[in-house]
Nucleic acid binder design. Structure first.
Lengths: 329, 329
DNA sequence: TTTAGCACTGCTCTTCTGTAAGTGCTGAAA
DNA sequence: TTTCAGCACTTACAGAAGAGCAGTGCTAAA
């Protein structure tokens, strides 16, 4: 348990360091703390012993440790009101009727990246609850048709289907009608099952060149993974003074370019969660704040990546704002 | 005009520097040049006077100048045969029947980025020659429908349309039928014109709630820019030793994140063109090799960005291979 | 025209030095 | 018991000085 004064000291150090990125010395805090630098030094010492503060070298000022940030986030930080400018920029996106929710999320996170100078990530994944609403087919030429699948939530997928050999347009139409009849209402990842166990057994009755057509459609519809990754403002986090060396920057860039690593940022929990340094699996030198969303048949994660020295209160408020505004839709 | 021996010297220096990224000294070339280092030094001096070589400081070895690379590329470099491994990896992509050409281009450039450790870019733009083949509409709920446009080349675009107030499904269907009748065969960037001058005047006759519907469709179809940008392997170029400082890396990353700058890489010429250092507008420290392609109603640029110290012959061969394989499709 | 030999130059790495910022400790005052 | 002025001490950082190295230009002889 730490004293009120120690808590104040920790708060001041964390906030000073977040702002200036330089170890905080005892003298700088005399005025606010209303005591001499020696007293502050001795308090700093206590906080260091508990593990909330660190030194960069034996005679340096203090820097919050991971545990220090954690304590700050859990016990000291106060919810911040959204500032006017942030609010304004986000509201124009959030209230835009002609954007689908999905685009609202993407755009908002773009804006947040600009506002905060951190990196933002949106991981989207079509939910397994999405149901097929309709399949449309448009012939392009002799051997190619475009198949389009629309789900009940308004997602659209399309695939080019290559059909070897000559097939009558009527045949294609019959196939599509048949598929449509059997497949509407199927969840998106059961499509290939329905094709195999319901369409395949009877397609021979209605369609002459059923083998070619069945195979073509089966291939086209067999994968609807449709995972999306959007990373905004990679450069932002690299501009931070803690990433002031070429190799560290390269390391981070490489991680952002690795799909698997970025995908692993996915959050399973519904709250707004903060992972400081080694608490996240991405990089020990960053903090990730993220939350899961489920919206309109799409389930995903919005995340924000910055230095551990992050404006925690502001970021949490911003993410909260987005979350509140999309969860209702 | 430079002598045969000078040309050989330049060739050796360029190729050595491309390989090792270190200024080339006179001693290192004695064996191949079959003369003493003093002779080589005097020849180097001549080449420096013409501006084909440079020193990094007064007593350093020589480095090719931009003009030196240019001379190498124009007069010395010989076409390289595709090596077995490169060939193999590309062929599996290029020959894959079930990929549409567009995906072949994207995939190939991804592979090339990995093979060469440079950065590749694909800029695509739907050609103005693309004609509307069909418009489909799928209702989602009371106030939302999905409109899908398919072009004669098999491109698919879709938009969510928000319809304020209550509108009968029949009305929507009539509108779509009307639009379909008038719009098929229109080039993609004339769609809004056709809507305004042909659909608008007569829609009132057939559709009751024509104002709401017309506006909704007009908004949805007014922009089909559909430009695509794909950047592969940003990290690759940053790993090169010439980009060994944080600020230079940040500069390059920022450029890659700026859509306008990346778009300006677009190439108008049909050949495979090489822009060394200040010859390109992207960054004086890189070389860009690029070419325009027109394929299947899409027109675009494939580009490769690396250090000026680039394996020119290999890259040209690789791009050539891609170009030859997509141009026929 | 070529080349051995030599003086010279600038880069790089290490060592050293002074300065600034900040600490811990001590003993006295409150 | 807490606070604090004063002091010795530590480290980072920047600049200067020196040694070693790689490579050059020039000269005079072959």
């Amino acid at each position: 348990m730490i004293s009120k004064r120690q808590e104040l000291l920790l708060k001041l150090i964390v906030e000073d360091y977040i702002k200036n990125a330089r170890p905080v010395g005892s003298k700088a805090l005399c005025n606010v703390m209303k005591c001499s630098s020696a007293t502050i030094r001795s308090e700093m010492n206590s906080l260091e012993e508990i593990g909330l503060l660190e030194k960069t070298h034996i005679s340096s000022g203090r820097v919050p440790s991971e545990k220090g940030y954690r304590y700050y986030v859990d016990n000291i930080m106060e919810p911040k009101k959204l500032n006017g400018e942030d609010m304004l920029k986000l509201q124009t996106i959030v209230d835009n009727k002609s954007l689908i929710v999905n685009d609202i999320i993407l755009k908002s996170m773009e804006i947040i990246s600009e506002l905060t100078h951190y990196t933002t990530i949106v991981l989207g994944k079509q939910s397994s609850e999405n149901l097929v609403q309709k399949i449309e087919v448009v012939p392009i030429d002799e051997n190619n048709i475009v198949a389009i699948v629309v789900t009940d939530k308004g997602h659209v997928e399309h695939k080019n289907i290559y059909i070897p050999g000559h097939v009558e347009v009527v045949e294609i139409k019959q196939t599509v009608d048949l598929i449509n009849k059997l497949i509407i209402g199927t969840s998106i990842n059961n499509v290939s099952e329905v094709l195999e166990y319901q369409v395949k057994p009877i397609i021979g009755k209605y369609v002459k060149q059923h083998e070619i057509l069945y195979n073509a459609f089966y291939n086209a519809f067999s994968d609807f993974a449709n995972e999306s990754i959007k990373v905004n403002g990679t450069k932002n986090i690299l501009m931070q003074p803690e990433f002031n060396n070429a190799d560290k920057i390269r390391e981070i860039i490489s991680k952002f370019e690795d799909k698997d690593i970025v995908e692993s940022i996915k959050e399973e929990d519904n709250g707004i969660n903060i992972y400081i340094g080694s608490e996240n699996n991405f990089d020990d030198d960053v903090t990730i704040i993220k939350t899961k969303y489920i919206v309109n048949g799409e389930e995903g994660t919005i995340a924000l990546i910055g230095p551990k020295r992050m404006e925690y209160d502001r970021v949490v408020t911003l993410l909260n704002y987005i979350k509140e505004n999309i969860d209702g839709k």
